[in-house]
Nucleic acid binder design. Structure first.
Lengths: 342, 342
DNA sequence: TATTAGCACTCGTTAAGGCAGAGTGCTAAT
DNA sequence: ATTAGCACTCTGCCTTAACGAGTGCTAATA
């Protein structure tokens, strides 16, 4: 499976867990003492030299201890890591969180609460990608007249996302006509994927409405605009947490991260899930310069088994993977059982 | 006016402008060279010693130059500062910004764009307090049925803010009844200040609706909830900018700021305007530990002459007040002339 | 043959000392 | 009232030295 002897695996695991805890390069002596493996420091030294040659460990400089390489972390996450349980306090906290979550009626509320909880529990940076308009299905559209000239369009999708937009009303438009247009649009569009509502496609659907072409065109343009929108709605929490990590004492590196955090599109790409459920991306696996020294654990959340979005926890590659994974697992499972009001 | 001799004023101004530019304590020699005031370093030294005694300057340590004290900045901002014009490039940029602003149809869009622009132009942190629900006036309420059990309430205020909320519908409720309730509420509440919509007060207003008390109660609770809400909607931009400032090279201090930025309520209080128009709060004038080394320039923005919210620029006390003030002035004036769609 | 003790060597960290530069306050001269 | 001159102070930076942690290699051991 791993191609490594049992002993090498045990040593690699020891290095990784120690380094995760201390953030200091770990030496052979430390391992032979702390983890009672009945081997002398010298033996461990030899094994560590091998592990370095194999690319699982690295040495910041001669005569320092070893730190895990990206490849080392990867092996650790995939094969070596013990699955952990949340601590009693964490379980207590989770219980309270679940109670709160059950009370939530709206997706935005839920997402924002989750961001906060994740940041607090993990002590890393949490990020949530909210439900995206693009990947949802048209449900209903309503127009609320404000005065003779303007109206508010309310657009609802099946995943509980609501979008408001102001439009101008054509001068001579009776309430009845307006209602007729809305009704027709609702009938035509029900169940359509938002993503596919391009202007030209919409136009074909609405042949029956040429009488009110002025209004319809505005609405269709709005829908088109919305369907094109790829502004990822990303929420962040706990950005200050990462300053506690020694690897981010360096102002430079942190600055790059902060700049990244203001670019919603980039964050959207970063969080784009590869698969359903949990996944761990380590260092350069994220394909983003700014987080090449970070790891990102993501989890997808669903509603009624339809994928809605992703949440993620971002920390240094020296992140406590076991703890983060189990916490996210629990929260994801809980959220997936919820059926929100909308 | 200031109680200082003309010469002292000139010297104080020189110290402040120099320090703003260089972030280094400025010495007597520098001043007598750079600002040609035909005085020897020794004379200036004497004056500076006086200014220190008067509390306008401070010395980080013996044998260092002087830096302005909070009181020094205050005098500078109030009396000594030259009013500056935006540079040609800034004017160019502003022109483009104004064009963008004129296209905006929704307040949220406008607010978010302004945050970005302010951060970019000033190179400090920008923060905008969006229109607050509390301080607006009820305009209209609509209910959009989703299915037999649920509906979406859309609440509109006069300042263009829209709020959606899901509610549960009582089982046996015809469309006509629903429409009647909505109509009645709209009539009763039109023009009421949101802030004053307490539950008990609402109840008295709606005596005509006891027939559908179940539904009405839900709506009233919603309104009540909304009116209580003081979650300031704060938008931030340019947080990474401040890392460029030498006074925030210290990770500790920056961490405190970041933590503050995650507390929306605190930010809301911070931005709470003292008066219409521009104002400058220096250091501890902000009454917030975390920003006791920062200055905050705020400007209120209005629509149709009604105050909507505040925007602010936060930087070190060593901020370029003149430049920030003129930029905010221009942007504020522009926004105040806009009449958004809604 | 695998393991281990011993040892020389490397490198980063820390503390101490010394020097240069900037700036001050004071005094005496203008 | 202003200024030149001078002694003094403090910081920042550089150098040096000592220390400690850790390694790789070699030779001894089970």
């Amino acid at each position: 499976m791993t191609g490594l002897s049992e002993r090498k695996q045990r040593i690699l695991r020891a290095v990784v867990t120690d380094y995760i805890q201390t953030a200091e390069p770990v030496g052979s002596r430390t391992i032979s003492r702390r983890h009672n493996m009945n081997l002398s420091a010298a033996t461990i030294r030899n094994e560590m030299a091998d592990l370095e040659e194999l690319g699982y460990l690295a040495q910041p400089h001669t005569s320092a201890g070893r730190i895990p390489s990206q490849r080392g972390y990867r092996l650790y996450v995939d094969c070596l890591m013990d699955t952990v349980e949340p601590s009693p306090e964490e379980n207590e906290y989770l219980k309270r969180v679940f109670l709160q979550l059950e009370k939530m009626r709206e997706i935005d509320q839920l997402v924002q609460y989750t961001v906060k909880v994740l940041a607090q529990m993990t002590n890393y940076i949490s990020m949530v990608l909210g439900p995206q308009f693009r990947s949802s299905v048209f449900r209903q559209l309503q127009i609320i007249p404000l005065d003779d000239e303007q109206a508010l369009v309310v657009l609802l999708t099946d995943n509980g996302y609501v979008r408001n937009k102001a439009i101008e009303l054509p001068k001579a438009l009776s309430r009845e006509e307006l209602a007729r247009v809305v009704k027709c649009l609702n009938e035509q569009l029900a169940g359509q994927a938002i993503e596919e509502l391009t202007f030209s496609r919409l136009h074909k659907l609405c042949t029956g409405l040429y009488a009110r072409i002025d209004l319809v065109d505005q609405l269709l343009l709005l829908l088109d605009e919305v369907s094109q929108e790829n502004s990822a709605r990303v929420f962040l929490g706990g950005t200050a947490n990462i300053l506690k990590q020694p690897e981010f004492r360096d102002v430079e590196r942190f600055g790059h991260l902060l700049t990244l955090f203001e670019q919603d599109e980039a964050l959207g790409v970063l969080l784009e899930p590869l698969q359903r459920g949990l996944s761990v991306r380590i260092g350069t696996e994220n394909h983003l310069q700014e987080v090449s020294e970070c790891s990102l654990v993501t989890a997808t959340y669903t509603m009624c088994d339809r994928p809605l979005g992703t949440f993620g926890v971002l920390g240094p590659t020296r992140m406590d993977y076991g703890r983060v994974l189990v916490i996210m697992q629990r929260i994801m499972e809980k959220i997936n059982t919820l059926a929100l009001g909308l």
